[in-house]
Computed example of a mutant assay.
Amino acid sequence: MLDVFRGLKNLIKVSHIHIDSPIFRLHYSITVMILIAFSLIVTTRQYVGNPIDCVHTKDIPEDVLNTYCWIHSTYTIKSAFKKKAGVLVPYPGVDNSKGKLDDRKCYGYYQWVCFCLFFQAILFYTPRWLWKHWEGGKIHALMMDLDIGICSEVEKKQKKKLLLDYLWENLRYHNWWCYRYYLCELLSFGNVIGQMFLMNRFFDGAFLTFGIDVVSFMESDQEERIDPMIFIFPRMTKCTFYKYGVSGEVERHDAVCILPLNVVNEKIYIFLWFWFLILGVLTLGVVLYRIVIILSPRMRVYLLRIRFRLIRRDAIDAIVRRSKMGDWFLFYMLGENIDAIIFRDVMHELAARLGHHKTDLQDA
């Protein structure tokens, strides 16, 4: 089992260079690892067992019936979920289907679960791929190993001057770079919401309220409600197989099928329901946070003061007042990666340059 997931550990390795927010990292790291792990689980027969086992007659080979029912889907009788199992029906959803074509609920999604999970993982990683491409290694290039802070004074002074010169010469030119990151965060939020609706379509409109239904069912009398996990992920279903008899007439064979894989599927999707809900709420908070930052320069000053307490308040006020939104984002990311003392010195010198430049303009 460990061999199957050993390769996934690379997905949760977060680089020591931070170019995004912790919530954004949850999308492309933890969530992608979870989805790929689930996809591997449902495709690894030795840990789950046969995906389907049907009760068969001697007239039909076991492998043929199992393969047929897996490919052509199975069904349950919706009204049978309300009947008492073991008394009126052998199992919830399993009943005489004669004359009940409109009462059938077909299940064919289980063939696509592993592919759907892998596709979801790709969608979650897409915003990260876009930002990594757009960011272009800017933060790493500007760091120049200043995150270590242990180097000769000559080297440190030279690197600080290079960083300061870049910030001075490119001040007010980082908006487009910054807004592309904000777009990626917005895409991540849209992806979570979109995937909830995607899975709702995947399960015939039963996924959006799946978690609420499960919690409500656990708190109520089981005899009065349909178990939503069994309704969406039945463990026992029916399958109809047709073949020619010895006389050349078409014979119908009804089979009862056990779906062991659904025991795993129900646990996977109840977890994903709550995980996507939490992730969506956190990402919505980040999107609202970005909107406030864009609209409020005062909030940018406050955040820099809270995060980087070594920098003088007057320096932060001068820098935010003379720069734009993109510059603020670059400063924040650099402060997250560079040694605190070195970052303080750079910001103080940048504020001093801005002050001198303003004085020169006034004198002119």
Rank of each mutant, 00 (worst) to 15 (best):
W131P: 06
I258K: 13
L40I: 02
R307H: 11
R172K: 14
L350R: 02
F5G: 01
A80V: 05
D59E: 13
P61N: 07
I311L: 07
N262W: 06
P297W: 01
I52G: 04
Y302W: 13
I230F: 00
A351L: 09
R104E: 15
G335T: 01
F197Y: 11
K157L: 07
L279E: 13
L142R: 08
R180P: 00
V89L: 06
G93W: 08
W328E: 06
V256K: 03
M33H: 10
I23F: 02
K161E: 14
P260H: 01
E169F: 08
I122R: 03
C151V: 02
M199D: 05
C239I: 08
E349D: 14
V192H: 06
K84W: 04
V246G: 11
F203H: 07
L277R: 03
T57S: 14
S97N: 07
S152H: 00
S15M: 03
V301G: 08
Y166D: 12
C114P: 15
V263G: 14
A206E: 12
R25S: 07
N96D: 15
F329D: 15
Y179S: 01
Q111C: 03
M199V: 02
L303P: 05
S323W: 07
Q111V: 13
W176R: 11
P92T: 00
D254M: 03
L208E: 05
D363P: 00
D63F: 05
T209V: 00
L142V: 10
L186G: 15
H348M: 10
D20W: 09
I294R: 07
A206V: 00
R6E: 04
R322N: 11
F115C: 06
F231P: 00
V292N: 10
K159A: 08
G136T: 10
Y302Q: 13
R128N: 14
L167P: 11
K238L: 12
Y109D: 02
R180C: 08
D59T: 12
K160L: 12
L288W: 03
L350T: 13
F197S: 04
M325L: 15
T43S: 12
F210W: 07
N66V: 03
G326V: 08
A255W: 01
N262P: 09
M143R: 10
I232H: 00
F38A: 08
H56T: 15
L187P: 14
R180N: 13
D363L: 14
Y179K: 06
W328V: 05
Y332Q: 02
I230L: 08
Y68Q: 11
V154Y: 04
H348K: 09
K9D: 15
I311W: 07
H356S: 14
E153P: 00
S188R: 04
V286H: 05
R45D: 09
F81S: 00
G149I: 03
A352V: 12
I342T: 14
D314R: 09
V48R: 06
